[in-house]
Write a protein that binds this DNA or RNA. Structure first.
Length: 288
DNA sequence: CACTTGACCTGTCCGC
DNA sequence: TGCGGACAGGTCAAGT
């Protein structure tokens, strides 16, 4: 699931569902997925109420009344699934999951004071959830090096061009995926943005003109805005916390469309491997 | 140093 | 149908 638009969709759903609730129970079964000690969990999580749900890059931050926060990274296959009687009332799309969760992919279960539950599921176990003092978040290695939010009003075309120029000898797709250049772009939206700007993903950053980088900035933001509006991308039966399914893939122009026609010029979309990732390109629009 | 590749895991899909 | 290998929306450590 998770690039910036998916994490933002989860964040908005959770903000509606859990702010103000008190955590009354927690169970986890892997050190790796949740490294905090039982003592810390008892002291800083159990009995705490949720004061805010934030996001930075692809990391979710659930702030607690104890001045601790739960940080969550979903990596490739992480999901946060809210289950229980909600303020949306009966008939919530996740109601049917009441008897299905937890399952074998469940790593952490949080129970709230109104008997609702939040499940952190992760098939591939790359994701993590950890408790830390809220004020220390900014000092973590990740937060120290992560680049600006692409949709921030402070983030200008010139900022983007400057930050890209720090990686002159790498290809443009790898630079877009580099979280220290700009936060939140992953494999889907890198391909979609490069198609929008008509830039071939293997071109070196130093060979892409400033005008093209400006186009990439514009396309990247348009793609991110559209994806958030559509609730992100999902290719499974997964339903997010608010019971909505992301529909961006219905609007994708190259991603997972190999063998189909480019919606702009009609050429056949090709798939290859760039920066170690499956990569989708219109060979005509995005000529090298 | 800058950049690229492999490892981390489990499940699924595709070709023989 | 069974089996091996490639691949999957991310990030680091290790390698060149």
């Amino acid at each position: 699931m998770p690039e910036l638009p998916e994490v933002e969709t989860v964040r908005r759903g959770l903000a509606n569902l859990i702010i103000g609730k008190v955590v009354v129970g927690e169970v986890h079964d892997t050190e790796k997925g949740f490294p905090n000690t039982p003592q810390d969990v008892r002291q800083f999580l159990i009995g705490a109420s949720v004061t805010d749900v934030r996001r930075r890059a692809k990391v979710l931050i659930i702030d607690l009344s104890t001045d601790y926060s739960l940080l969550i990274h979903l990596k490739m296959t992480g999901q946060l699934v809210f289950v229980g009687e909600t303020r949306f009332g009966a008939g919530h799309p996740n109601d049917s999951l009441v008897n299905e969760l937890p399952d074998k992919s469940t790593r952490v279960t949080l129970t709230f004071d109104d008997d609702t539950k939040l499940f952190f599921n992760d098939q591939r176990k790359f994701g993590w959830m950890r408790l830390m003092p809220t004020v220390e978040i900014a000092n973590t290695a990740f937060m120290q090096k992560v680049g600006p939010e692409p949709l921030s009003t402070d983030f200008t075309t010139n900022d983007f061009i400057q930050r890209l120029s720090r990686r002159p000898k790498t290809n443009i797709k790898a630079a877009l995926l580099d979280q220290s250049v700009v936060a939140g772009i992953g494999n889907i939206y890198a391909d979609e943005s490069l198609w929008g700007a008509k830039i071939h993903p293997t071109r070196l950053v130093s060979d892409v003109t400033e005008a093209e980088k400006g186009e990439l900035y514009t396309e990247m933001r348009a793609v991110m805005n559209l994806a958030i509006e559509k609730g992100g991308s999902s290719n499974s039966t997964y339903v997010n916390a608010e019971g909505k399914k992301g529909s961006y893939m219905d609007f994708a122009r190259v991603f997972r469309r190999e063998g189909l026609e480019c919606p702009r010029c009609g050429a056949v979309i090709e798939k290859s491997r760039v920066a170690g990732r499956g990569t989708h390109v219109c060979p005509v629009c995005q000529a090298i």
